[in-house]
Amino acid sequence: MHILLVEDDHKAARLLARGLEEEGYAVTVAHSAEEASHHALSRFDMAILDWMMPGKDGVTVCTEWRADGQTLPVLMLTARDAVADRITGLNTGADDYLTKPFVFDELLARVRALLRRVERVQPPAALQVADLLLDLRSRAVTRAGAKLDLTPKEYAILELFMQHTGAVVSRQQLAEHVWHADLIAIDNLMDVHIKNLRRKVDAPGQAALIATVRGRGFCLALPEHDGA
């Protein structure tokens, strides 16, 4: 299980991440809402979100996630313990609320409870097109059973393609989703990554899945739907 921890206190984040990792969880730490936005939420099984952060606070972040249709379970952490604050936190879409200071065992119990809920309502997090399989939990990618060794950028590109199977993904979409940058800044770099990704996914002897749609972008589709 992969947890996104958004906590601006570096020491607290380090200790909390270490404790969760010792319990067998994978943890990605972000120290601000801006840093958290660099990660695709589909990678995670839940988020632990601090309310009080400089800049955009946890309540705003959670509200934006829910408005964007994100269903990722959220455990809100805060020093605010008034009933009204708890109600506000839950009304933003948080699934649970824990006040600081807290005992780690209680946080762990709440994490387990939220993840059990996820396991009951969500199918295995995987994307598949033909014999290409991408596991969103382990980030493993295979084609015809053979593991593909992708770089983080190649994985992010392929994940976006597979989330939009059969549809054209524009170069601007790629620039914003993968690099969080304007297309002009990374246009040539994008071509290098696409070329390397194609070499791995559409290796010799494999039916091509990634197609270039001239003037529009790229499309990942079943072989019989390939287009130039």
Rank of each mutant, 00 (worst) to 15 (best):
E106N: 07
G93D: 10
T28F: 01
D45M: 08
M52K: 11
A84S: 14
D45C: 09
D105T: 13
K100S: 01
L72V: 10
M76C: 10
H39T: 05
D81W: 03
R66V: 12
T60A: 15
P73F: 12
G93C: 10
K100E: 03
L90I: 08
L90D: 00
D95Y: 03
A33W: 08
P73Y: 12
E34K: 13
A36C: 09
E35G: 06
A84P: 00
H38L: 15
L98N: 03
P54M: 10
E64Q: 14
L75M: 14
H38V: 12
Q70I: 13
W65S: 02
T99H: 02
I48T: 03
M76Y: 04
D57T: 05
M46I: 12
D50I: 09
V103E: 15
W51S: 01
A79S: 15
F104H: 06
A47K: 01
A33F: 09
E35Y: 04
L41K: 02
L72T: 02
R80S: 05
A30T: 04
D95A: 12
R66L: 10
A67V: 03
A67Y: 08
T28A: 12
L77G: 03
A84G: 05
M76E: 08
G93S: 11
A84M: 08
A94L: 05
A47E: 01
H38F: 11
K56V: 14
D50F: 07
A40I: 07
W51D: 02
D85S: 04
A67N: 08
A40D: 15
W65T: 00
S42D: 15
S37P: 01
R66H: 10
A79M: 10
T92K: 02
L75Q: 11
T92H: 03
A36S: 12
V74C: 14
A33M: 10
R80F: 03
D96W: 00
L107G: 06
N91R: 15
A82E: 15
T63G: 08
E106G: 10
I48D: 02
T99P: 00
D81Q: 08
S42M: 09
G55A: 07
E64L: 13
R66P: 01
M53R: 08
A84C: 01
P73E: 12
R86L: 02
P101K: 01
M52I: 04
E34W: 06
V103G: 12
D57P: 07
V74G: 13
D95R: 07
A67M: 09
H39Y: 15
A84H: 09
D85Y: 10
G69M: 05
M52L: 13
T78M: 02
T99Y: 02
H31M: 06
V83F: 14
T88R: 13
C62F: 02
R80L: 09
